[in-house]
Simulated scan of single mutants.
Amino acid sequence: MEHFFTIIGGMGTSATETYLHQLNERTPATNDQEYLNYILVNHATVPDRTDYILDHSKPSPLPPLLTDFKQQAALKPDFFTLPCNTAHYFYDELTKATDIPILHMPREAVKWIGQNLPNAHRVGLISTEGTRADHIYDDEIKNAGYELVLPDDKIQQQTNELIYANVKEKNSVDRVLYHEILRQMFEEKDCDTVVLGCTELSLAQDREPYTKHPVTDSQSILVNKTIELAKKYAQE
């Protein structure tokens, strides 16, 4: 297969399915042959990223992820995508395992803010506690010159409930809860935009869109960047 990319997904599977759905839906294709070539590695048994980040005595996701990247690198994809925000904690180690480019979802999301929301100053972040602890978004947001706004304990607990009790456990989205989380971030925390720093939150945005204020959907942005890069490689 010529000019393809590899998706290292399955963290979680429902969120990866949303990524694929958006990828295929947004690809400008009128027949089978105009869709993108890709391989999906839906590695659902990768240990929980947040569990490990918060407690290093728990099983590490890094060894299985390294194996995935090394195995797929042997097939020589044009690039990799990693549709799991928390897994970017291991980004530097993963890039050392291959010379094939790996798209950096948090970096692309922050770049998107600068390109599309020029008046944004206060950038909120909702995510897993693992992503909060590993600061992968904090550094990107602050280095771009924005003021980072994090949720308080109440909003974080609501976010945890949405991610784990709703999406991961039941593959469902509590629309009222999701919209209330964002309402608080925008109206009480005075955010100019809020980054969805977890792909389960991106799934929630896909199914129950919040449109009252500008949301920065990291996975949706990754989808667009994936299509852009795949088309670029296909033309070479």
Rank of each mutant, 00 (worst) to 15 (best):
R132N: 06
Y210R: 10
A74P: 00
T95E: 15
N119K: 15
K111F: 09
E236C: 05
A234N: 14
R26K: 14
H21R: 13
Y178W: 07
T199H: 12
K76V: 00
E25A: 10
E129Q: 14
E140R: 06
I7W: 00
P77W: 03
A144P: 05
T86K: 11
A230I: 08
A87F: 11
L103H: 07
L36P: 08
I221S: 01
L20Y: 11
A144C: 07
D55Y: 00
L36R: 08
D153V: 08
R175S: 14
N85Y: 11
D32K: 03
L117D: 12
L162F: 05
V176Q: 11
S202F: 06
D48F: 03
T159H: 02
D138T: 11
Q33T: 06
S218N: 08
I53V: 08
K189G: 00
E236M: 09
Q235W: 03
H43K: 07
T216E: 05
V195E: 03
K212G: 04
N171W: 05
T67K: 14
A144Y: 06
H43Q: 11
E188C: 04
L222S: 02
D48I: 04
Q33K: 13
K58E: 06
V195L: 12
V167Y: 01
T226V: 12
M185L: 05
L20M: 12
T45M: 03
E108Y: 12
N24C: 11
I53S: 03
E129T: 14
S172T: 06
R175Y: 02
Q33L: 10
A44T: 13
T45Y: 06
G145W: 07
I221F: 03
E147Y: 05
T95C: 15
E180I: 03
I113G: 08
Y89R: 11
I141W: 02
H56T: 14
A29T: 04
R183E: 12
I227N: 11
K154M: 06
P77Y: 01
Q71C: 04
N85F: 09
Q157Y: 02
F69Y: 13
N116W: 10
